[in-house]
């Protein structure tokens, strides 16, 4: 539901550039909702990560993590996702300065890096499948694909939001406070990156 929360460009008017007008805490409704949403997402990914941790050693007749993981490749895609956080931050900065052109440039860069990451994931999944690890091969396979798949879907949703935002900014149709909308999508994007930081370490780097 992130896209809804994000686009819920509520209290934003010309004289209210920070969207934090007339609330009891002085904070923006949208940002508060987004942070709360991200907090709840921790429970979602926590559950998926725990499932994976519990099942990662249960290989059935299939290959194990040590046989299929390609750490150099995943390191590169992790690095790409990390750098997309930097471009996202730069987009937020540009948006705060009211610089539409650079906002669009950095948002597009972020979307591109995200797409590279998802592409890497698709490549990785294909390779694993060819090496004999399908979704139903073993509990390790099921829980691995479920966890990384959920993360991949989150990244993909983020890309859709980023591209939609670029389009909307181009046509000057941003509902509400532009800088805040960019910031909200940025929060979501960074969160997806944070989740990957945890997955990269717990799933890929720590040997089963």
């Amino acid at each position: 539901m992130a896209d809804i929360a994000v686009h819920e460009g509520a209290h934003a008017h010309e004289h209210d550039a920070h969207g934090a007008h007339a609330t009891s805490t002085g904070l923006s409704n949208n940002k508060l909702a987004m942070w709360l949403f991200l907090g709840t997402e921790c429970l979602l990914f926590g559950g998926l990560i725990s499932t994976y941790m519990l099942y990662r050693g249960r290989l059935g007749n299939g290959p194990g993590p040590g046989q299929v993981f390609d750490i150099p490749l995943t390191s590169i895609s992790s690095f790409i996702l990390l750098m997309s956080s930097l471009t996202m931050v730069l987009a937020v900065n540009a948006a705060k300065e009211g610089d539409d052109r650079n906002t669009r440039v950095w948002l597009s860069a972020t979307a591109l890096l995200g797409a590279l990451f998802v592409g890497g994931q698709v490549y990785e999944f294909t390779a694993f499948y060819q090496e004999g690890l399908g979704f139903t091969t073993s509990l390790f396979g099921s829980s691995f694909f479920t966890l990384t798949g959920f993360h991949g879907v989150h990244v993909s949703l983020g890309i859709i939001m980023l591209m939609a935002l670029v389009g909307i900014i181009t046509r000057s149709k941003v509902p509400g406070d532009k800088a805040e909308v960019v910031e909200l999508i940025g929060l979501y994007w960074h969160f997806v990156d944070v989740v990957w930081v945890v997955i990269f370490t717990l799933v890929y780097l720590i040997p089963a």
Binding site: L36, G39, T40, E41, L43, L44, G47, L48, T51
Partner: peptide, 9 residues
């Protein structure tokens, strides 16, 4: 807010 994601999983 925090229990729903668990049942979702």
């Amino acid at each position: 807010a925090f229990a729903m994601p668990v049942i979702t999983v």
